[in-house]
Design a binder for these strands. Sequence first.
DNA 1: GTCATCATGTAAGCCGTTACATGATTGC
DNA 2: GCAATCATGTAACGGCTTACATGATGAC
Lengths: 219, 219
Amino acid sequence: MFDLAILGLLDETDLHGYELRKRLGDLPGMGLAVSFGSLYPALARLEKAGLVKAVTNRPASPAPAAPMSGSLVGELAAFRAQLRQAGNAVREAGRGSRGKKVYGITDAGRRRMHELLVDPDVTDDRTFALRVAFCRNLGPAERLELFERRRTELIRRRDLRRNPTRADGRVNTYLRSLVERDTAAIAADLAWLDSLIVEERATVPAAGSGADTQPGGNP
Amino acid sequence: MFDLAILGLLDETDLHGYELRKRLGDLPGMGLAVSFGSLYPALARLEKAGLVKAVTNRPASPAPAAPMSGSLVGELAAFRAQLRQAGNAVREAGRGSRGKKVYGITDAGRRRMHELLVDPDVTDDRTFALRVAFCRNLGPAERLELFERRRTELIRRRDLRRNPTRADGRVNTYLRSLVERDTAAIAADLAWLDSLIVEERATVPAAGSGADTQPGGNP
DNA sequence: GTCATCATGTAAGCCGTTACATGATTGC
DNA sequence: GCAATCATGTAACGGCTTACATGATGAC
């Protein structure tokens, strides 16, 4: 669950651990703060597995697209301005890479990310949120499948809920209110999901032709 | 977080582990299934700490109220019927207490539960849900404080959210949708909380006189 | 008599945390 | 030069999960 977040962020741009942590915190679905104590070991593990690698000095993706002006001084100023404008994002490059380790994703890492995005065995809420956050890396059909699997899961939960009545018959007002809130939250989530699905279907014109998605059929 | 759930349920009625697990699963805020691997050790730990104790044969609260008929056979039949009628709730007594361990809460356990209900240091979502589930054990002022602390926490989260813009300026539709859903969920939660607070205030007539709740003032 | 369910537990391990230790860079 | 922040790591531990081991009871 952690790995997916790291790989997903590194797929967008190279980052060092400290900055990575901040962005991890901004991702819905991750606990608000991610600790270094888990981040660094995770990075080390991923590096060892060849899924990410330490890159030396590259300011990553947003670098190009500025046409050469011919003036060296102007060039430098433009570079600085670009850094400033991008804010914290690429600040790491400003200090050289002495004490830092800037990580980038590898091809193997991208394959692994894809695996994590589509794995049907993991169905917890946080993972789903992360998957949505990075699902632009999926094909339209895969995305649809992701959404629909989630939909099935939510419906299962909604219908599975036995209301916690107690043996002595007394009703607990607060507990009931809590359950109602929970039900409402699931309903809202389902509505949101449905809107996602509708939008996605509009993108994939003729569903049913793809091998990945089989609408309806299965239990 | 686990302890609170166990103590709260045992405060309602005596239960053995297996049945406890089912009810744990019905509680919002707990993962849908709680594993025995954590439940039994937790129970053992709580027992060792004197917060719960194994009770021998009592079918707990709903037991009595059946007058003696004088006939031994009739007695037995009535007993059986009672068991059947009460459903899963007290079924445990039906097998005698040979292989089973029925637990009940102790006075120390109730004090501990109260501690867990009011502890201001724990602010995670699941714990809050559990607290609401069992907050009938709190006084009105304590309940109000619980709700208002949660409210503060949710507002903090809502305002703290930096939107995860990326260095390259591209916007990720899915991520944005996800963040919006998240914001909406927090808003809905806040609305629910506010309704709880309003109801609670109606119960506690003159707020402001109590030492526990100070509305507004603090940052 | 055997199978499903009820029931209790142990062992290994994963995933993540807090607390600790260390050092570089920048601003004042 | 000193403090705050940036930055990277290690160690110990906690909570919860899965998988495993065991056995009683009731239904058929």
